[in-house]
């Protein structure tokens, strides 16, 4: 028995689905963010699997850029969360249902 690309892609799909479920279920905005990170990582895993199946490094470079964008996204997202927390003393996504603070 050999570990083929299918095993990695199946794992990636499972992790992505768990991330989606987490985003829909959880109410704490920080945990929702962590679930988004989980989904980004699942996609990275499939990128790197495809890089190996195709025998080229483009998939790995793409995964690298996904990490860069994820880092930028986390910085801005957590900044917004801290700003919202200052106004409302809560990080629950249910409390943030109006655009105007």
């Amino acid at each position: 028995m050999r570990v083929g690309p299918g095993a990695y892609l199946l794992l990636s799909a499972i992790l992505f689905a768990i991330g989606v479920a987490g985003v829909l279920i959880r109410r704490n905005a920080i945990v929702v963010f962590m679930c988004i990170e989980l989904m980004l990582n699942a996609v990275n895993l499939s990128f790197i699997t495809f890089a190996k199946t195709n025998g080229s490094l483009d998939g790995q470079v793409l995964a690298f850029f996904v990490m860069v964008v994820a880092a930028a996204e986390v910085v801005v997202g957590l900044g917004i969360l801290v700003a919202i927390f200052r106004k409302r003393s809560s990080t629950s996504v249910d409390d943030v249902n109006l655009l105007k603070g």
Partner: peptide, 26 residues
């Protein structure tokens, strides 16, 4: 339910051919 449905959809798409792909070497 929706997350499970998504998982089934992705796995179904994968089963169309990637599962038996021969891994090349880097």
């Amino acid at each position: 339910l929706l997350a499970l449905g998504l998982l089934v959809a992705i796995v179904g798409a994968l089963a169309a051919g990637v599962f038996d792909a021969e891994p090349a070497s880097l």
